[in-house]
Amino acid sequence: VFVDDHLLEKVLELNAKGEKRLIKTWSRRSTIVPEMVGHTIAVYNGKQHVPVYITENMVGHKLGEFAP
């Protein structure tokens, strides 16, 4: 499973602090992992960042699938 390192670091850091804030990313190719559930990730679609709230059903899919 591929997840960009910088994105995973941000998610794990927020989980350690117990925070839930918006994470901006250009990494549409990253796979959604269970650690991301409950976070809102702003995924770049080529024009703007689209906020995507991550749920359990999204695990295993790519971030780009949810930012048309």
Score class of each variant (00 low, 15 high):
residue 12 L to G: 04
residue 55 T to G: 12
residue 23 I to F: 03
residue 48 Q to Y: 13
residue 44 Y to S: 04
residue 7 L to S: 01
residue 10 K to W: 08
residue 3 V to M: 03
residue 65 E to N: 09
residue 21 R to S: 12
residue 41 I to F: 07
residue 2 F to N: 06
residue 3 V to Q: 04
residue 17 K to M: 10
residue 59 V to T: 12
residue 60 G to A: 11
residue 3 V to K: 02
residue 36 M to C: 03
residue 5 D to N: 15
residue 56 E to C: 13
residue 65 E to C: 14
residue 5 D to Q: 15
residue 23 I to E: 01
residue 44 Y to W: 14
residue 67 A to N: 04
residue 24 K to C: 15
residue 60 G to H: 13
residue 54 I to T: 03
residue 57 N to C: 14
residue 53 Y to L: 13
residue 51 P to V: 13
residue 14 L to A: 09
residue 39 H to A: 02
residue 39 H to F: 09
residue 68 P to Y: 08
residue 23 I to D: 01
residue 66 F to A: 05
residue 46 G to P: 02
residue 27 S to D: 03
residue 22 L to Q: 07
residue 62 K to P: 09
residue 14 L to P: 01
residue 26 W to N: 14
residue 19 E to M: 10
residue 60 G to P: 02
residue 12 L to V: 09
residue 57 N to V: 14
residue 63 L to N: 02
residue 44 Y to D: 03
residue 1 V to N: 14
residue 59 V to P: 08
residue 45 N to P: 02
residue 53 Y to V: 10
residue 29 R to A: 13
residue 49 H to R: 03
residue 26 W to E: 06
residue 33 V to R: 04
residue 8 L to A: 03
residue 2 F to Q: 05
residue 63 L to Q: 00
residue 67 A to I: 06
residue 6 H to N: 08
residue 39 H to I: 03
residue 33 V to S: 05
residue 30 S to M: 03
residue 37 V to C: 13
residue 11 V to H: 00
residue 40 T to D: 06
residue 62 K to A: 09
residue 58 M to C: 07
residue 47 K to I: 14
residue 37 V to Y: 10
residue 39 H to C: 03
residue 41 I to V: 06
residue 9 E to R: 14
residue 7 L to R: 00
residue 33 V to T: 08
residue 20 K to F: 11
residue 29 R to G: 09
residue 58 M to Y: 11
residue 68 P to F: 10
residue 28 R to W: 07
residue 26 W to I: 05
residue 29 R to N: 08
residue 39 H to G: 01
residue 7 L to D: 01
residue 53 Y to R: 11
residue 39 H to Q: 02
residue 64 G to L: 08
residue 16 A to T: 09
residue 58 M to A: 08
residue 53 Y to T: 10
residue 53 Y to K: 12
residue 25 T to D: 01
residue 13 E to P: 00
residue 43 V to H: 00
residue 62 K to G: 06
residue 18 G to W: 03
residue 68 P to D: 08
residue 48 Q to W: 13
residue 23 I to M: 04
residue 2 F to M: 06
residue 11 V to C: 05
residue 32 I to V: 12
residue 5 D to Y: 15
residue 21 R to N: 10
residue 37 V to H: 06
residue 31 T to R: 08
residue 35 E to C: 14
residue 40 T to Y: 07
residue 41 I to N: 00
residue 27 S to N: 04
residue 3 V to D: 06
residue 40 T to E: 06
residue 19 E to V: 13
residue 13 E to Y: 08
residue 10 K to Q: 15
residue 44 Y to A: 04
residue 61 H to V: 09
residue 45 N to H: 08
residue 22 L to Y: 06
residue 8 L to V: 04
residue 42 A to S: 09
residue 18 G to R: 07
residue 51 P to Y: 06
residue 4 D to F: 02
residue 10 K to E: 15
residue 12 L to N: 10
residue 14 L to S: 05
residue 68 P to C: 13
residue 14 L to V: 02
residue 10 K to H: 13
residue 56 E to M: 14
residue 3 V to Y: 04
residue 11 V to G: 00
residue 34 P to N: 12
residue 35 E to M: 12
residue 16 A to R: 13
residue 26 W to H: 14
residue 66 F to L: 08
residue 6 H to W: 15
residue 21 R to Y: 10
residue 52 V to K: 04
residue 46 G to L: 11
residue 27 S to P: 01
residue 43 V to Q: 01
residue 8 L to G: 01
residue 55 T to H: 14
residue 11 V to N: 01
residue 42 A to C: 05
residue 9 E to W: 11
residue 66 F to G: 02
residue 56 E to P: 12
residue 27 S to K: 04
residue 24 K to N: 07
residue 38 G to V: 00
residue 55 T to W: 13
residue 15 N to C: 03
residue 2 F to E: 08
residue 7 L to Y: 00
residue 40 T to M: 10
